[in-house]
Amino acid sequence: MSTQPIRTDVTIVGAGPCGLFAVFELGLLDLKCHLVDILDRPGGQCAELYPEKPIYDIPAISVCTGQELTDKLMAQITPFEPTFHLNQMAESLEKTADGWWRLTTDIGTVLESKVLVIAAGGGSFVPKKPPIKGIEDFEGRSVFYAVRKMDQFRGKHLVIAGGGDSALDWALNLQPLAASVTLVHRRDEFRAAPDSVNKMRALVAEGQMRLEIAQIASLEGADGQLSGVVLKDKERGEWPLACDTLLAFYGLTMKLGPVAEFGLNLHENLIPVDTEKFQSSTEGIFAIGDINWYPGKLKLILSGFHEAALMAQAAVRVAYPERKIRFQYTTSSTDLQQKLGVA
């Protein structure tokens, strides 16, 4: 699937705190932004890894949680009307004949801009893959870490592994379509919405779903097609369970991912930048936040905010070289206040 390219001033890869604040700094300079993130919501690590944990070192905010910081940033950038392309992996980058960066996502969104800002943090969040021998041979054919189309699992004998909301939600959603569903989890406790746990337990009691308190030891099958999994547990040892599909939900991990293929110089999976513009080795491509590297770099949110401000000054000169830029304070500039919708 490929859609009509969207042309904008700036494309930002990553909607973590630094990508979000970049919208603000770029917005003050009249640059419009589109953001891409593989997660289903903005906030990056703050929203995904520690939404409820406190942060104490955001200047002037004594304490706020990861989610509160995200919410505050979202409120702060509202006047600039950024467009979010969530649940999408920024996959490939090329330069158009007329000198724009063309970024294509895994579901075919095409964004073209003069400036590309990589705020990819610790990398894209991707599902954790169990370190089971030979699992790669089955991936995409009979082993999956996400559900894109439910119908794909109609009539299948499914093993669903994991004990969180994803495992429970998919076990419940796929149960009516599948030939059978067995939920496999290491302990008889689930960290998931109580309502889902109750529904699952009811189905198990009625014999419509199976629950195995065990871990997966190995896989059986050939040519990419599973024929079963071997389960294990301390008391019972190992035993086979026939199935044709495994869905594994063990949470997310961060991987640099496609950004590695964007043709930029990398230094230990980070993007080296200068500390004047936070530009990468390629003109027009900037990198801010946890993804960049320069001498003395600290992976802190406040560093990313500073980087966003300086990057924006350079970005506007790339996008609109003819424009005259003056330095103004939000306190005293009616022009800036109008942009913020307060004057």
């Binding site: 954790k128 370190p131 994991g162 290491r186 302990r187 406790e189 960290r191 871990q215 301390k234 063990y250």
Partner: peptide, 13 residues
């Protein structure tokens, strides 16, 4: 910690 171990592999006693 016990709940987080749900996201680890080959969890033992």
């Amino acid at each position: 910690e016990e709940a987080m171990l749900d996201q680890a592999f080959d969890v033992r006693e």
